[in-house]
Design a protein around this nucleic acid. Structure first.
Lengths: 146, 146
DNA sequence: CGTTGTTAGTTACAAAATCAACTGTTAACA
DNA sequence: TGTTAACAGTTGATTTTGTAACTAACAACG
């Protein structure tokens, strides 16, 4: 096996996907990190609330597939920084509705524009048809179903 | 922004890539974790040595783009478990050549087969043409160049 | 030589992710 | 009701990662 093994890491999908994901996340990461001191989990929660409006931690978990402890901690930090507020449900007091404050909405709108620009820059490197195929396949892989 | 924001996370490339990468890594992760107690960094180092034969930590870093501290720790664990050996270069004693032991080669060959099977299963879900486009785009994104 | 800079790799400390156990609440049903 | 199970969310302990500073070795050049 020493020299010239026939297996190629650059063709192994999980490896390749991870490398592409890492590289493409980096630029955007610098923005939310430098500008708002956020973590990946935090901008994700922010975006979910920005896009869908008021929702519970549980619902965010279902949509994002993030583990509830990550969400709990991200929510705590966003609340601490006054980007969101929490209200208990009157009927079922286990539930807590999360909603962005005005500051949170401002941050969301700002980052959304950065995301759109970033996405366009990436998309511009490929044809529209290729990009459509690409996203369709990513969604299929992300959804998992064998 | 509350309801029906026009931005869609499912179209935002860094997010989508991360989700696809996470899902597609999971099955393989379970194998190297359960079967050999390895971490992601560890199987990567193992594969580099399995594919390319004897090389230094620096060279692994150049090929994999992993940070040298990750590699250092992965190498330490693999050495501890007798999957690889280290020899100092006689001429330049800063360099350390890493090489798989027989046990390391066995683990590599085993995991390589799992990887191949896993990869085929993923590939089988798409046409060959789509898969070629997909990998070409992933490589372009991974290589970074704007 | 000897000083300064560079390189390969490691270690120490802080930040973050993961897993399990926990609190407080509602639901089910004998 | 009372007891047990299920659920939303939090907390704590452990593991893993990331950042910086470090050690040991070589190189360049006065």
């Amino acid at each position: 096996m020493s020299i010239a093994d026939d297996f190629d890491l650059q063709n192994f999908l999980p490896y390749l996907l991870n490398q592409a994901a890492e590289v493409s996340s980096l630029q955007f990461q610098q923005v939310y990190k430098d500008r708002y001191g956020m973590l990946r989990t935090e901008w994700r929660v922010l975006f979910h609330l920005g896009i869908y409006g008021k929702m519970t931690a549980k619902q965010i978990g279902e949509r994002s597939k993030m583990h509830k402890t990550k969400i709990s901690r991200a929510v705590a930090k966003l609340a601490e920084r006054r980007f969101l507020t929490r209200h208990r449900d009157g009927a079922d007091r286990r539930l807590e509705y999360l909603e962005l404050t005005e500051a949170g909405r401002r941050a969301y709108r700002d980052l959304r524009e950065v995301a759109k620009t970033h996405d366009s820059a990436l998309a511009a490197r490929f044809s529209e048809a290729d990009m459509a195929t690409f996203k369709r396949m990513l969604r299929a892989l992300a959804s998992g179903a064998a």
